[in-house]
């Protein structure tokens, strides 16, 4: 496959959208670099959103690409992908995974989030990480101050919640947030916002849901 069919370039309002065809990552990446080297002045200073299709990419691969692009004066700001793994890798690296124009492949907001697979994250989310997922999100680890979880469905934190969580982000008022230690910077469910009162005593597991238009926390009781 020639470089030109592997690498498709489109202008966007705020930069370039490059779509890579399906090929081994090494080949696709090389095709992109070749293309850039053919027209260095065109790419100089560009903001690049990269659609990697079905590629499953590890963070070492993405960060290597970001660094080699930045050496050519190109800012990689977004990665679009069909693979949740690649999306979450990109998010961890601080890259956007959506551009303003919705992707045609993207399903419209699901009415019921129950059918969506939950996103499973088994590490601590540190400051600066933003996780966005149309369905439920489960975090096994802490959500530190400065980290954000935006979910279409419910959010379960098996750890300490000290950052920001927005459950039911697309308007689902049935969504709930659970955490072993509920001390969020701010909590949102659908359109409602609350700031947690300072916790008294030792942490206890709590569930927060919407009741009469207000966020209410209830201790979680086994049985």
């Amino acid at each position: 496959m020639s470089d030109s069919s592997l690498v498709q370039i489109k202008g966007l309002r705020d930069g370039l959208l490059v779509t890579l065809g399906d090929a081994a990552w090494m080949i696709a990446q090389e095709a992109l670099i070749n293309r850039i080297e053919q027209q260095p002045s065109f790419f100089q200073g560009a903001r690049l959103a990269l659609d990697v299709g079905n590629q499953v990419l590890k963070s070492a691969e993405l960060s290597a690409l970001r660094d080699s692009l930045s050496e050519k004066g190109i800012t990689l700001w977004a990665i679009l992908s069909n693979s949740p793994t690649t999306e979450s890798t990109a998010q961890i690296l601080g890259l956007a995974t959506r551009i303003h124009k919705a992707r045609p492949a993207e399903a419209p907001v699901a009415k019921s989030v129950d059918h969506d697979a939950a996103l499973w994250i088994d590490r601590t989310l540190r400051s600066g990480v933003r996780i966005e997922h149309p369905g439920h999100v489960v975090v096994v680890g802490d959500v530190n101050p400065g980290a954000e979880v935006i979910a279409g469905g419910s959010v379960i934190i098996w750890g300490r919640l000290r950052g920001v969580v927005h459950a039911g982000a697309q308007g689902n008022r049935e969504a709930t947030v659970c955490a072993l230690d509920m001390s969020p910077t701010q909590l949102r469910i659908a359109g409602e916002i609350a700031v947690a009162p300072a916790r008294q005593g030792p942490p206890k597991p709590e569930v927060v849901h919407l009741k009469n238009g207000r966020l209410q926390a209830e201790p979680w009781n086994p049985g």
Partner: peptide, 9 residues
């Protein structure tokens, strides 16, 4: 904390 996150990434 932010830096630790970036290093992990």
């Amino acid at each position: 904390d932010r830096v630790v996150g970036l290093l992990e990434a």
